[in-house]
Amino acid sequence: MKEIIKTKDLCFSYFEYSDNDNVNQAKIDVHALVDINLTVNEGEYLAILGHNGSGKSTLAKLLNLILTPQRGNIFIDGQDITKPDLTEDELFDVRRKVGMVFQNPDNQLVATIVEEDVAFGPENLGLPREEIRRRVNFALNTVGMSEYSGHAPHKLSGGQKQRVAIAGVLAMKPKVIIFDESTAMLDPRGRKEVVDIMEKLNREESITIINITHYMEEAARADRVIVINDGKLIMDGTAKEVFSHVDELHSIGLESPQGRELINELNKAGLNIDTDALNEDECTEAILNKLKAI
């Protein structure tokens, strides 16, 4: 398998002024990320977990150079994007390869018409008109928003807006799409729409998906889960492996998916359900089987 993203001893810190002293504002060095070594293979479906301020969004913003790391290297598709002599064209090539969908659907749509917004990325790439048209149609079709191509974005629901934002990234033909808490502001229905599209893009278009989230149910659907706490990468494995470290997750303020939590509680009460189930259906079945057996 080909490595699409590789980070080596990646560090990022920023200055913050302390609030309590207005006269001599002390500069505090905040270490957002410390020595992150992460390798993501092409076609992977990865979830990044961590509570607020853990550094997970910072990591995402480093991968397409919206932020620049102080130390360490990032390799995208084999190319070192942290080298000092990176040209502007190379920078924009990185941003084309690593697309990003943000949290607030309202604050990432630029144009007043859906299809013109989807065209924004390809327009910036300087593609010929016919190619832009082809990509816009393809992208809107993939996210199931073709019938809304002439609509105004502000009349769409949150989930629909987020799908348009995904189409906008998709139209640039990225290799990786990073979802930076893209479902956080959506209702359950919108959330499902977006996660379904993530999986569809991963399976059908073999795009590498990185979903940064604090919904455990979403993370459980990914092939691989990594956990970041206080700027350090502390867990890395399949969803089932990661969520089996119950106490460790609890100690850093994270939980397992609700079904899993219920089984853990039942086990504590002495039920001894032996399963690594994560999603609702599997958990229901495991509990049901145990109850029948009693």
Partner: peptide
């Protein structure tokens, strides 16, 4: 806040003014 987020989103979508830019319509 919106302006800042929008600027980041536009940068992430390769916006660099009208340099080398084409139009759909």
């Amino acid at each position: 806040k919106r302006a800042e987020e929008l600027a980041t989103a536009m940068e992430a979508r390769c916006y660099r003014g009208d340099k080398n830019r084409t139009k759909l319509v």
